[in-house]
Simulated scan of single mutants.
Amino acid sequence: MTYASIMVAVDLGDQARPRTGLAADLADTFHARLIGLAAQMPDYGGCPVGPTPGGTYGIPAIRDAVLNDLSRARTAFEDAARGRSRIEWRSSLDFPLAFLTSQAAAADLVVLGRGDDGDPCMAVDPGDAVMRLGRPVLIVPPRVDHLEARRVAIGWKNTREARRAVQDALPFLKRASQAVIVSIDDGRGAADTRDVVGFLQAHDVDATSVARDALGAPASEALIDVAAEYGADLIVTGAYGHGRLRKWAFGGVTRDLLAGAPVCCLMSH
């Protein structure tokens, strides 16, 4: 199993270039094609109807400004891709998440920023994306421009989402020198990791497990601490295992990792 096609969302924010460079390096690693994507919907809401300075004659100007933004995003993508031959560009006058969702069938892996670190007109909220795309999403935090993934931490509970995430992360895991499965006791007991360790070992992954007590802290903090202890620069987790609305209201590992993880996170739902 590998990633044959990697898609990266591009915007005009400061973090788009390092994120695209990271995605391009991953495309090299997995011998994959790299698809850059951007979308923006023209805002005609403030444009009155009629031949006034802000009316009908202003609508083409608004559309042209958005097309110019998309052209600038394409230039940034091509510059960051540094002349690689297997690249493709897709853009549209559309809402960013809607367009990304419509194009996700072309990708094995989708690379996104955090959503609040980019151009708000083009950025995609990764929480919305992981729920809608049906693809694993790699979230790149600010100021990260490279992913080695020689050591990978897996946040484990025996849920559908976590099982899906482990399967989706196999291309990374098979290349890693070590994968550590992290089971956090958040007051309800630590999950049994024997089956997932056995599954990964059957795929020739050097997998071990560790159980930690959250000690009253958020489980996400314990997971990040273990990742740092083992020198992992990639965390793999299932996303929103008990419903997104409940997790956003009362807290949850997914929300906390999206907001503040210092390393890349691969999430599946």
Rank of each mutant, 00 (worst) to 15 (best):
Y3F: 11
A4T: 04
I6D: 11
M7S: 03
Q15L: 11
R17N: 02
R17V: 12
P18A: 05
P18V: 04
G21Y: 03
L22V: 05
R33T: 14
I35R: 03
A39C: 14
P42N: 13
P42C: 12
Y44I: 15
G45W: 03
G46V: 11
C47Q: 12
C47I: 15
V49R: 08
V49N: 07
G55N: 00
G58P: 01
P60Y: 02
R63L: 06
A65R: 15
V66A: 12
L67H: 13
S71I: 00
S71K: 01
A73S: 14
A76R: 03
F77T: 11
F77N: 08
A80W: 09
A81N: 00
R82C: 05
R84S: 11
I87P: 15
I87D: 15
W89Q: 06
R90N: 11
F95M: 02
F95E: 07
P96W: 00
L97Q: 11
F99K: 15
F99M: 14
L100D: 08
T101K: 05
S102E: 14
Q103T: 11
A104F: 06
A106Q: 14
D108A: 06
D108E: 06
D108V: 10
V110E: 02
G113N: 05
G115R: 02
G115A: 06
P120K: 09
C121I: 01
V124A: 13
V124S: 14
V124Y: 13
D125Y: 00
P126R: 10
G134A: 12
L138D: 09
I139W: 00
V140Y: 01
R143I: 03
V144S: 02
D145W: 00
A149F: 04
A149H: 06
R150Q: 05
I154D: 09
K157A: 12
K157Y: 04
R163N: 09
R164K: 10
V166S: 13
Q167I: 04
P171E: 07
L173K: 06
K174G: 04
R175E: 08
A179K: 07
I181D: 02
S183C: 09
I184G: 11
D185H: 06
D185P: 11
G189Q: 11
A190M: 05
D192R: 02
V196M: 01
D206L: 05
R212A: 07
G216D: 01
S220G: 13
A222C: 03
A222L: 01
A222R: 01
L223K: 11
D225A: 15
A227T: 08
A228T: 05
E229L: 13
Y240W: 09
R244C: 04
L245K: 06
L245D: 08
L258M: 09
A261W: 09
P262G: 04
C264D: 04
L266I: 06
M267C: 10
M267E: 12
H269K: 08
